[in-house]
Design a protein around this nucleic acid. Structure first.
Lengths: 136, 136
DNA sequence: TATGCACCCTGTATCAACTACAGGGTCAAG
DNA sequence: CTTGACCCTGTAGTTGATACAGGGTGCATA
């Protein structure tokens, strides 16, 4: 498989594949006579693992740990669960934070009745620090 | 006000204040004889506006537009409402996306019963692309 | 007077996770 | 024989800061 095919097979940008290789997330594949990268099915599976993990929001370093575990099936897998659990907590935290943010934005938005900026409640709300504090 | 005082007054890192000046978000203040930056209350208000906007997740470019409106009170403020409304939509989209993510992470997490990585459901779930697809 | 300390200055490098070229090589079809 | 699709390396840019290195300033204290 050439890099373009791997790219299509996994929905990953070609530049991103080369980037993953450069940072050591994917092993360097063998090369053809023309110095083209040549991938096999193991590469495809590993890249799919990485993409799926990235889609779930794991960082590259977390994925490194997860791949390391995946490469050493005899090891204790408690780490994997720990990484995933912590990540889930972070996601939940982020959701809570965005929900607060949505509250405040909702209060700000839609209060502009087409006037001039001098009377704009949106601009006013952004400048007014007290309004933010008292709202919480 | 010296930069350290402005920093404490607005809860903004000193380096960040200088960064905002460098990218033209804050006007360059006058200097003391010793070449120290010297801020007034207008600077403080403008920085508070920026910080509040950043806390709400507006990008620097959006803040530039909002500040521009704030600087020209005679202009139509429909833009401000448009920027805030679009941002609210983006926040809502992000929340929805993170909620989906939380679903999948919840399914993955906690299935590890302390065995070895070979049997780990977390690792398995990450590698298994089909499981992800079918789940949606 | 010296000296220590907190504060300030500029300029550049670093972070995450990519993405986007520039400038060149390879290969098959028309 | 040339056009086009594909591949290569290496470097620079993105966002929103943050972190020095290497130096200057200003005030209190020994």
């Amino acid at each position: 498989m050439k890099i373009g095919e791997l790219s299509r097979a996994t929905g990953t940008n070609i530049e991103t594949i080369r980037y993953y290789e450069r940072i050591g997330l994917l092993p360097a594949p063998s090369r053809t006579a023309a110095n083209y990268r040549s991938y096999g099915d193991a590469h495809r599976a590993r890249l799919a693992f990485v993409r799926h993990s990235r889609d779930l929001g794991f960082t590259i370093e977390e994925i490194r740990s997860l791949l390391d575990l995946s490469d050493h099936p005899e090891r204790d897998c408690a780490d994997a669960d720990r990484i995933a659990t912590r990540h889930l907590e972070q996601v939940e935290e982020k959701i809570a934070q965005l929900a607060l943010l949505r509250e405040e934005l909702s209060r700000i938005v839609g209060r502009c009745r087409g006037g001039i900026a001098a009377d704009c409640r949106v601009i006013e709300a952004l400048g007014d620090h007290a309004q933010c504090e008292s709202a919480h």
